[in-house]
Design a protein around this nucleic acid. Structure first.
Lengths: 195, 195
DNA sequence: CCGGTTTCTTGATCCAGATCAACGAACAGC
DNA sequence: GCTGTTCGTTGATCTGGATCAAGAAACCGG
């Protein structure tokens, strides 16, 4: 892959940070990996051994509560990061599952290298910090919205925010992500598309 | 206040980081401030000018959606940090409100100083990073639980996690935090305490 | 191209919790 | 200590969405 247009570099630049000529060096800390549809990158109870940057494919992150109900927390598509940083960093058991929904090609980075790049590349530490802040803000918003908004509102918001996601992920998984039943989602769509 | 037992120092140590003899220097970047019950530290639409560490009192962070409904997102009691880092850092309008629920005594830090201490005190940068990771994990869990769990389950969890909070905050605010109506909360408590 | 599995739709029923309304209880300010 | 206001309880009613059940469609692998 031509370094100049590597997806990870594009992502870094688009967030307003510039690795200058260090990108190739930086990239050497990441290891490519492939996962087949259905494979797990991480299971609840394990310690996360790496986090990933998605080159192609789609992952779902979900957890299973005491009653055995699955709850999808988010979908990572191309150019998203995914994993359990907390678990990887502190070597504690994760309570997340990370599964490939399609055949996936990713870059992985382990604990050692993650710590090295943080020290070695200040622009990366900055990007990480900014990314966390953005993500925390988004999560907080989501907490509020998930409690207040109706199922329909949540669906419409998702449709607006991530229209492509709805094309590639089965409907019952979208329902789980929205925190509603598949039947409810089916009815919402029927209602929306018949008027 | 005797530096050795400053609440902020205690908090830092309890998270496994050691400022050594730098704490006094570090502390000089924070400015004490007082807020009266009901006062706002930050309003939706403003750019956050500082973030805070709570010495005494209790704050609520909430947002108001398009329909004018208030949603409490969290309560910051003693030894909690609060504020909108994203807004402060990027100088963008916040969509959070931060209000004193009691007379509060806090330490504030502004953008400039926040950036300085990050550069100057590596242990602080580490603590910040770890804190963010922990907080993101907690928020993700909360997103999942808020969608799946019944009102009663959520109340019991809060009762277990933050028993003292329920003593000091009016019930209708707890209800808002849990995403249920005050009436519903009243009924849940009645049911729990009559059996 | 066929039989099996997985996903989506539709209908019927049920219930947690919202909403509306009205009344006690606690509390703050004078 | 009285009085207005904010807060909590209780009752009655309504509804969004869950759950259960059973077809219909789509999507395989051989």
């Amino acid at each position: 892959m031509e370094t100049k247009q590597h997806p990870l570099l594009i992502q870094i630049l688009s967030r307003g940070f510039d690795p200058g000529n260090e990108f190739e060096d930086f990239l050497s800390f990441w290891k490519p990996a492939e996962f087949k549809k259905g494979e797990h990158l991480l299971r609840q109870g394990e310690v996360a051994r790496f986090t990933v940057f998605v080159l192609s494919g789609c992952l779902r992150q979900y957890s299973v509560n005491e009653n055995g109900q699955e709850q999808i927390i988010y979908f990572a598509e191309e150019n998203w990061f995914a994993g359990d940083l907390q678990s990887m960093r502190s070597r504690v058991a994760s309570n997340l599952n990370l599964q490939a929904l399609e055949n996936c090609s990713v870059l992985t980075i382990n604990k050692t290298n993650a710590e090295l790049v943080l020290e070695r590349f200040p622009w990366w530490a900055q990007l990480q910090l900014a990314g966390h802040q953005r993500w925390m803000a988004k999560l907080q918003q989501q907490v509020g919205q998930s409690m207040i908004d109706s199922a329909e509102t949540k669906y419409l918001r998702l449709l607006k925010d991530r229209p492509k996601l709805l094309q590639r992920v089965p409907q019952y998984q979208i329902a789980s992500f929205l925190g509603i039943s598949p039947e409810a989602l089916s009815r919402i769509r029927k209602k929306l598309y018949t008027f």
